[in-house]
């Protein structure tokens, strides 16, 4: 090793033993503490903010269904049921002559009703039967009528 090499090595090694100013070390320590404290404050606030947000979310999650359940809903109104005061049925005596009305008269009346109804649209040829019940349960009149109005 040359003299210059040795001298260089000694000079470099001497830099290691050079005293550092105490103020520089104190400044480092203070800076570290300050930045840690600032970080902690920041974390505290962010934690509080997170908690507040979470609490608000929980409150909303609970309050909204509760409110929905307790407040009267504006649902469609139920239709009013018509109430009719029913009077006591009055039994009227049956007129004998109506019973005695001849069957053909009632047939004529029914025919008139059929005739007075509006004309039916043209249909295919089809025979309709009308059963006419008389007062006598043993007598039933069957009245056949085709689409042209011809009766039998």
């Amino acid at each position: 090793m040359s003299d210059l090499d040795r001298e260089l090595s000694e000079a470099l090694a001497a830099l290691r033993d050079e005293a550092l100013p105490e103020s520089a070390l104190a400044s480092v320590r203070a800076g570290v503490r300050e930045r840690i404290e600032a970080g902690r404050r920041s974390r505290v606030w962010s934690t509080r903010l997170s908690l507040a947000t979470a609490a608000a979310a929980v409150w909303l999650a609970v309050a909204i269904p509760w409110t929905a359940a307790t407040l009267p809903l504006k649902s469609p109104r139920a239709p009013e049921v018509a109430s009719i005061a029913l009077s006591r049925p009055v039994v009227q005596p049956v007129q004998d002559d109506s019973k005695l009305k001849p069957a053909h008269a009632r047939v004529e009346q029914a025919r008139a009703t059929v005739k007075s109804s509006p004309p039916a649209p043209p249909r295919e040829e089809r025979t309709q039967f009308m059963r006419i019940i008389t007062d006598d349960p043993n007598v039933v009149i069957l009245w056949a009528m085709n689409s042209k109005g011809e009766t039998r």
Partner: peptide, 16 residues
Amino acid sequence: REDAQDAAQEVFLRLY
């Protein structure tokens, strides 16, 4: 010195 102090602070914060 100033840059060294800043760097040293950063090193100890990383250590933390």
